[in-house]
Design a protein around this nucleic acid. Structure first.
Lengths: 213, 213
DNA sequence: TCAAAAGTGTTAATAGTACACCCATGA
DNA sequence: TCATGGGTGTACTATTAACACTTTTGA
C-alpha cells in the first residue's frame, strides 16, 4: 500500500523493564550489565528491542520472561522515553514497563546466566542513559497506584504476616506507618484475610499469616 | 559506533494528540480527516510523525502548534500504542499525548486550513485505528489528575463564573456535583479567587467572576 | 410577575491521625 | 528472666455527603 510515510524516519524501539521485588524486607530492582555497545558493561534495566511481529506488551512479557522465567506477572506500561540523545549511538525510543514480582518465584539460577542482580530500590547505583529517571518515575507511579489497588499481592508470598505487609507499605510509600492504624486499615480490606497459619520463623511468639483472596 | 542494534527492526514513530477544550459548556476534542493513506478521509486525532532531530515532547508541541497555533500549552504524555496491526499499512508506534487548551485561544481560522473540527467528547464518532481507545484512556487520566491538580486553569477563560467551573467539573468527572458542596470546596482553594467583575451575559442576576492565581 | 440562574448552612457519617502498653515465647 | 517481635483501643480532627430555599433582575 502507498502510505506517504516513506519520507519519515524510522527508529529502533526498545522495551525497558523496571522489575521490582520485595526481598529481604526491602524493595529491590533487577538490573544487569549492558551486553552491547554503547555503554557496554554499564548497569542497566532489563531491556531489549521490539521485534517486527511483536506488540509492545508482548515484547515486555518476553523480555521479563527471559530474565526471570516468569509469565503472567503484574506489569504495566509506564511511559515512552524518546529524547534524541538518550542513546548516544542511535535513535532509540524506549517504552518503559514496570513489573512487580514475587521474590520467591524468581529463579535465582537464571541470574548466573544473565548476570542480573537485585539492588536496593532506595539506593540505586548510576544506571546508563535515562534509566535512573525511568526508575524514579516507576516508583512514583507504583506509590500512587498503591493507595487504590491491591498491588501488594504481586510482591508478597502467598502467606505473609502483617508486619511484613507493613514493611512493604513503608518501602513503597517511603515513610513509616503507624502499626495500629495500619492494622485497622487492613482489617477493613475485604481482599486480605487471616489464615489459621502461624509463622514461627521471624519471632518467638509467632505471627498470624494472612493471604490475598 | 558499532552497536549491535542493526539486526533489529526500526519502526515509524508517530505522535497523536488528544486535544481537549471546554467549548459551549461541554468538553470537546479536536479531530480531523486523515490526509493520507491508509484510512485516508477517516476521522482521526491530530497527529504526525516524529522527526529525526526531535524529542517526543517536541514533536507533540510542534503538531499541537500546527493545528491550534498554540505554544506553552498544558500537555502530557499518555502512553505508547504499538500493536502490530494498529496501522494496517505499516508498523507505527504512536506516542499519545493529551492537551488541555483554552477554547478562546484556539484560532478558528486555522480549522479552514486544516479541516479540524471540535466534537463532543461524550459523543465521539468512530475514529480510525485505535484512536477511540486513546481518547478514553486520556479522559480517564484527566479525570484522575483532576482531583489533585488545578487542571481547570488550562481549560477556562481568564475569568469564569462558579457555574461554569462546576459544569467543567461535571464534564470531566462525568457526573453531577452538588452545588453547595462544590462552592464550599472552591472557597477553600487558594488558587481560585473572586474578582470584582460580574458576568451579566449568562443570567439576569449576574454571576461573580473568578480567576486562577 | 415570572422565569432563570445565582447564591447560601447545617448536620451526619466516614476516614484519617496520634498515641503507649501488654503478650507470648524460646533462648 | 529477658529480649524480641506480635498484638491491641480510644479520642480527636478533617473530609465528604446529603439536602432546599431565597435572591436578583430583565423581559
Amino acid at each position: 500500500m502507498v502510505t506517504g510515510y516513506s519520507e519519515y524516519p524510522r527508529f529502533y524501539v526498545s522495551v525497558d523493564c523496571a522489575i521490582f521485588a520485595f526481598k529481604e524486607k526491602r524493595l529491590q530492582i533487577l538490573i544487569h550489565q549492558r551486553p552491547y555497545q554503547p555503554a557496554q558493561g554499564q548497569l542497566s534495566l532489563i531491556g531489549g528491542f521490539v521485534q517486527k511481529d511483536e506488540n509492545l506488551d508482548t515484547a515486555a512479557e518476553r523480555i521479563l520472561c527471559e530474565f526471570t522465567g516468569l509469565n503472567h506477572v503484574y506489569m504495566q506500561q509506564l511511559a515512552a522515553f524518546g529524547d534524541v540523545e538518550r542513546d548516544p549511538a542511535e535513535r532509540v525510543v524506549s517504552i518503559v514497563y514496570y513489573a512487580l514480582i514475587n521474590a520467591e518465584d524468581y529463579d535465582e539460577e537464571l541470574s548466573h546466566q544473565t548476570g542480573a542482580q537485585w539492588v536496593d530500590a532506595d539506593n540505586l547505583p548510576a544506571l546508563c542513559f535515562d534509566h535512573n529517571q525511568m526508575v524514579s518515575r516507576a516508583r512514583q507511579v507504583i506509590c500512587e497506584n498503591f493507595k487504590t489497588t491491591a498491588v501488594g499481592s504481586n510482591l508478597l508470598p502467598r502467606y505473609f504476616s502483617l508486619s511484613l505487609l507493613q514493611k512493604l507499605y513503608e518501602s513503597i510509600l517511603g515513610q513509616p506507618v503507624d502499626k495500629r492504624n495500619f492494622r485497622r486499615s487492613i482489617a477493613d480490606k475485604a481482599y486480605i484475610q487471616a489464615t489459621s497459619l502461624i509463622d514461627k520463623a521471624s519471632s518467638r511468639r509467632g505471627a498470624k499469616l494472612y493471604e490475598f483472596c
